[in-house]
Amino acid sequence: MTPVPESHYLIFSLILFSAGIFGALTRRNALGVLIALELMLNAVALNFVIFSRTAPEGSASGQVSAFFIIALAAAGAAAGLAIVLAVYRSRKSIQTDDTNLLKW
């Protein structure tokens, strides 16, 4: 067992996740939102690692799942930055309020 109880780790990862939500909701720059999304995904990967210590028979599959999440986050970052660059090319701005994000 780890010296620190599992629940403390879980709450820490929830703090990371919530900080990510806050950033994603408030950032006006698309890159800022992407940074916040990375935080959220990191919290998910951390959750898998935490549970890999305790969940019955989950030790290897927990770490493997975290590995998949990290790879997905990298793919997501690549796709996100490509789109951000494409928008920047045609608008010279990546402020989300310039791109009328909430129009219906």
């Binding site: 879980l10 996740f17 990510g20 994603a24 698309a30 939102v33 992407l34 999304l37 959220m40 995904l41 919290a43 998910v44 959750n47 898998f48 935490i50 549970f51 305790t54 969940a55 989950g58 927990g62 799942s65 999440i69 997501g76 796709a79 996100g80 789109i83 951000v84 494409a86 928008v87 990546i94 989300t96 791109t99 994000l101």
Partner: peptide, 24 residues
């Protein structure tokens, strides 16, 4: 595409968090 990406990744992060809880 940008709007789709930002909103979509935000929602799928929640989904991934839910899956991690199920794993726990």
């Amino acid at each position: 595409a940008l709007k789709y990406l930002l909103l979509g990744s935000f929602c799928s992060a929640f989904m991934l968090y839910g899956i991690s809880l199920l794993f726990g």
